[in-house]
Design a protein around this nucleic acid. Structure first.
Lengths: 219, 219
DNA sequence: GTCTATATTATGATAGAC
DNA sequence: GTCTATCATAATATAGAC
């Protein structure tokens, strides 16, 4: 729990709704600040300045600066997971789903580079996400692992693809593409620039690493 | 030029040598601080504290905090380039040289994660390296490009490997491996953990992406 | 080249009036 | 839930004594 406990959270109450809006606004501003000044550049003072209030007011919504980081992390994980899950569900299980999920992930991460770094690069040494905030990442791993297993079962990849190693390889490919894009082409959206268009080609190499048994040729 | 101009740099002078030693010591401490507190956690005050002097003394050696970053960047680039060049020169030109160079690079980067991030991840928004400090990176690109061209010429890879795209793919593979190792297994040296052992396998996929012409089979 | 002293600015966080 | 006032701390950087 990152937010301060609500004073009297009668559901549907106008005050509670207004409060929630302010919380969202704070988090949106925090994301802006991180994007402009680096993930480490986030400060309560700067958020207050942009929100048009004085710093003490922020503490009515969040207990500390680290609590803001934690809320950003937790929401980032949840949103990112949902983006990926939705994209995967719309595609054919197996390699297609994996590619669709990772492309959606990349698109979102390049559009939210600060949150992306917070989620996957750990740039704030003093910030350790709570275990609740980490939970969606377990589910994300499960999704990708399932897609690899589906691909192996469908004969798109060899049996070796249903493995932790293949999962690590996938994470290396994706984080490599996104990391290079962020560092060298900041601001460019997914699909543009030198790096993000490489992902499909790189995912194709999974078939070279884990070749399917050359059984009956598929249509 | 990051360092302050020396007062009377008669070559071989004892004072100049002592001064140089202090500069080295400051940079070594700065690397420690970045490693412990994040690249952004570097501060003149902390360096002074660890060196056992007061902050103003640091300014006799460096004009500003950014000047320290610039010196770290410049030395990091030079050292990293030399490591890679040496490793490549000891191997057979082509894929072997590329793999040897990248492995040496990975080993050094994991041993100097803070400098590595400073060089290739741009985590300090207010710091822009000078063009002199960037120069070695041009040479590094040239080395890798040459290795790819050699591999193509030797028939280890197809002609398509002698291309910028292949260079970008290589950088994605390497930065992906190193980034994942740094973020998820900090402190582990090259060769241990889940990620760095994947690099040879991943480099092997270059042959799948840029298959050599199936001419006379090589021994 | 070291220090003390200081200017300036910023931070996270709390107490308490309104 | 807002503010003012304040505490405690830390930062970069400079002036000037020694």
């Amino acid at each position: 729990m990152a937010e301060v406990t609500a004073p009297a959270p009668a559901p549907g109450d106008r005050r509670a709704r207004r409060r929630q809006e302010t919380i969202e606004e704070i988090l949106a501003i925090a994301d802006d600040v991180m994007t402009e000044e680096g993930v480490n550049g986030l400060s309560v003072s700067e958020v207050a300045r942009r929100l048009g209030v004085k710093p003490p007011s922020i503490y009515k919504y969040f207990d500390s600066l680290l609590a803001i980081y934690d809320a950003l992390f937790e929401r980032g994980q949840r949103t990112h997971l949902e983006i990926m899950r939705t994209a995967m569900a719309r595609a054919e299980p197996g390699l297609d789903a994996l590619a669709a999920g990772l492309a959606a992930s990349g698109r979102w991460l390049l559009a939210h580079p600060a949150t992306g770094q917070l989620l996957f690069w750990r740039p704030v040494p003093s910030f350790q996400p709570t275990s609740e905030a980490m939970a969606p990442s377990v589910e994300m791993v499960r999704l990708q692992r399932q897609a690899l297993a589906d691909a192996a079962a469908a004969g798109q990849l060899g049996a070796g693809a249903d493995s932790d190693e293949a999962l690590w390889v996938t994470s290396v490919l994706v984080s490599g593409v996104i990391g290079q894009a962020m560092a060298n082409e900041p601001g460019l959206p997914w699909g543009e620039g030198r790096f993000s268009p490489l992902l499909p080609k790189l995912l194709g190499t999974l078939a070279a690493l884990y070749p399917p048994k050359p059984s009956r040729r598929r249509s």
